[in-house]
Design a binder for these strands. Sequence first.
DNA 1: GAGTGGTCTAGACCACCTA
DNA 2: AGGTGGTCTAGACCACTCC
Lengths: 243, 243
Amino acid sequence: MADELRRAIVDGTLGPGERLPSERELALRYGTARNTAREAVRILSEQGLVTSEHGRGSFVRRAGPLIRLGNDRYSPRHREAGVSPFLMECAQQGKEGRFEVLSVARMAPPADVAHRLQLPGSEPSVLSRENVFWADSDPVQRVTTWIPWSIAEGTALVDDEVGHPYGIHGVLEERGFVMARLSEEVGARMPTPEERGYLLLPPGVPVLDVLHTSLDREGAAYELTRFVMRADMTGLRYDAPIE
Amino acid sequence: MADELRRAIVDGTLGPGERLPSERELALRYGTARNTAREAVRILSEQGLVTSEHGRGSFVRRAGPLIRLGNDRYSPRHREAGVSPFLMECAQQGKEGRFEVLSVARMAPPADVAHRLQLPGSEPSVLSRENVFWADSDPVQRVTTWIPWSIAEGTALVDDEVGHPYGIHGVLEERGFVMARLSEEVGARMPTPEERGYLLLPPGVPVLDVLHTSLDREGAAYELTRFVMRADMTGLRYDAPIE
DNA sequence: GAGTGGTCTAGACCACCTA
DNA sequence: AGGTGGTCTAGACCACTCC
């Protein structure tokens, strides 16, 4: 039953956005109990093909165009444009991007962050900044940045509004930290319930989990950022020379 | 009920690999029907926290160490080692890597591949090679490579066994195609039923979908590869200069 | 054979949406 | 008000595993 529905969806018999037959209707049509029909719809929802909306029905999910985060987002070439690369990508997709500051606080870094910054994980040795990025009315990324307190102390980084035209990396450059290389570790997983809440994720949508490290000319890490991105609306692109 | 179990798992009360109470046991303990207890276990399984094994029980999933595919896997520096980078990564994790050739055939490329190679999608203009990569007894990646037929024709690339010490890129280099840059587009999604079959994926495990493009010194694309990787056992790492 | 998860039935009530 | 999905009950049989 799930297979037949799946075929109808990939064939295009059921186009994107179309409503599936109701659970009661499916049960009747196949001569099964409603629970069984419901299970079929659940399987499609787990595969990310279908979204159920309480009181309205179940719908074929529409494949929205991806917002792709490229590694060129840190390029000085894009500085001249004066727009944050996320907002630029959004504009290209005809969407309006914005972001929201969740918190700015001095704290002890998580173990993996502490290790990469070569800082103790037991002391409040970093400044942490949390943001949520939106495209139109959808939250699409949850972003956490960690900067050694010794670097952040006394700068605009500790303010809610950074207020620098080039964002946090503009402030960091003025303190002498210029990004020469990046290292990004990419994984994917199902969201935690907390992340499902922040990103309003329907079932069957995984997240991309990216841990970004900024390295200076000496190869020392001076800033880390974790991006948790909903994978149905965002992706990544890396363009790099072979070394 | 799912929340309580979840807490027990993240707290460590239920350690990795441990068996959950059976569905009938949970139902009894909470005074609910078995279906309700079952639903709680299903939710955890969807979150990737738990795997159910028919006839045995449900178990807390153990977080295996990741095999990370780095962009340095194409570096000429690694050529000297003489080992494929996937096998190297496996060895680092104490695993034995191997791969299996599923098919080698001349065919018409999918639309996105045709576009990037600037070839017509309606003719058999590419050689396609499909592999599955294994780490110990787990299939972890399904890999499809497309090479313009004009390049592949008459080379060892059309054979089941490539037989070149440096694999397909060794053959391509001898034909004058040296990788100068790469471009990789990364996404994540739930697997198709076909992929679940190839990769023996339990529920709640997404896949990373990577479309790799090899570019020569002139910036022209001459080879594409799509990696579909199970995200609970593999990840990616990109180290690149800021340009 | 006893215990497990996988599937299924035939109901029931609730919460939500649309008209 | 009527239809939708969300949750739940109290059973049943099957397929699998382990002893």
